[in-house]
Amino acid sequence: MDTLLRLLVAIGIALLVTAAAALVLHLVLRTIARRERWAAVLSRRTKHPFRSMLLVALTWAAFAASVPRNAEAYPWRDEVSHAFLIVTIAVGCWLACEIAIFLEDLGLHRYRVDVPDNRVARRIRTQVLIIRRLTVAVLVIIAVGAILLTFPGVEAAGASVLASAGLISVVAGLAAQSTLGNVFAGMQLAFSGSIRVDDVVVVEQQWGRIEEITLTYVVVHLWDDRRFVLPSTYFTSTPFENWTRTGSELLGAVEFDLDWRISPTEMRTELDRILGTSTIWDGRTKVLQVTEAVGGLVRVRILVSARDAGGLFDLRCYVREEMVEWVQREHPDALPRQRVQVTQGREAVGKARPRTEEQDASLFREGDERSALFTGPIQTSGIRPEDVPPAR
């Protein structure tokens, strides 16, 4: 009873100390957060793991101080202490992961992606996100290894494990070949710069933005709010289009097939007016050219530019609509036409006259006579012996 009472008192003290320490730390970080934004982020990230870590550590210390080392009276003391050790390692791994994520977020805070020229920021964000996942994976592996080493007998089995490590690595490599390929491909994508988070890409004839890059797959947010999930090896082995590789500015074309009566000069004047009233056009490119004039139609191509892919699509639609209305309103004679020339031949051409029975009979009779020349008996009368050539 004395031991149980001491244990309860020690656990109560541990709870009070945990609450007091958490309150003091919260007030300190709250005071700093009034001047520094990172303090609020740190408090939000580490609040729960820090309190859990402190509570487990103090409770373990209270248990160790209250329960004496007596194997006969307290045979369960070592098992409980072992459980406290495992929980401490797990909570410590949780706290370390949150601190690592906080430090990475602190570095990302200086690189904003909500600005027009965010190519460097998107590259840094992609690399940091991959490093974050690697860091968390390494910390979890270390924690699991530390927990396994706390069990008796694991140290003795280490020699046999190391002896068979070569064979196991070969088997594991063959079994997880595709997975490891995706992992290395994800790391290559993160540090090569071929794609970054928020890049505009065209994959499998689908237009979208890179939403997430992991160690094994890439998520593409398509224009119609669908998500296209592709393995990381796809972007290292298959050609794809990256519209924001070096910059977000893009060129787009609008084409028209019009009649020869259209005036390209007047169309250029109208294009100047349309782009002058547009807030999407970035002012870099404005070209109107006649690219083809064959087959009875004139093909007019307009090149315009915008700050990003979404703005370019809207700008092309806007220019197309305004030009269609202008042609209908100002030059209806320039609308595309198909010219067909219809001619009527002589009346006798193409008319079949019915044949009479006498004509059909004479036709077949003449045919029978011609056939008899080739299939009838050979006439030998009138042939003299001297006309026959001698046999050789």
Rank of each mutant, 00 (worst) to 15 (best):
A293T: 08
A334D: 02
I274L: 11
T291C: 12
D333E: 15
M323S: 03
S371Y: 03
A352Q: 12
Q338H: 10
L335M: 14
T285D: 11
T375H: 07
I302V: 15
V342S: 05
Y318H: 09
A334T: 05
R273S: 06
M323P: 00
L275V: 14
L297M: 10
V298S: 08
W281L: 03
E322Y: 03
R339W: 09
D308F: 02
Q289D: 15
W281V: 04
I302D: 12
V298N: 08
L335W: 06
L315I: 11
T375E: 09
V294S: 14
A293H: 10
A293L: 12
T291K: 11
G311A: 03
L303A: 08
K286H: 04
D314S: 13
R299K: 12
T285F: 05
D333G: 11
G295I: 07
T380Q: 10
V300K: 06
V298E: 07
K351M: 01
G296D: 15
L288F: 10
R365N: 06
R355P: 03
Q379K: 02
D282A: 06
A306G: 10
V300I: 14
G345F: 06
R365P: 03
V327L: 01
P336Y: 06
E321A: 14
G296E: 15
L303V: 04
V327Q: 00
Q338L: 14
Y318L: 08
V349L: 09
G367W: 10
G310W: 01
A352F: 12
G296L: 15
L271P: 00
V324M: 04
Y318V: 01
A309H: 03
G350I: 14
A361M: 05
R355V: 11
V300F: 11
Q328A: 09
G296H: 15
V287C: 03
P377C: 07
K351N: 01
E347S: 13
L271N: 00
E330S: 11
G367K: 13
E357W: 06
P336Q: 06
S278C: 07
A348K: 11
F313G: 02
W281E: 00
V349F: 11
A372Q: 12
V304M: 07
R355E: 11
K286A: 14
F313M: 10
V294K: 13
I280C: 00
V349R: 05
E325V: 13
V287Y: 09
S371C: 04
Q359S: 09
V298M: 12
G367A: 15
L275K: 02
G276T: 02
G311E: 08
R307Y: 03
L363K: 04
G310K: 07
I274V: 15
A372T: 06
I280V: 15
P377S: 11
Q379G: 02
G345S: 09
Q338P: 02
V300Y: 08
I280W: 03
V304R: 00
G367Y: 09
E322I: 03
R273E: 04
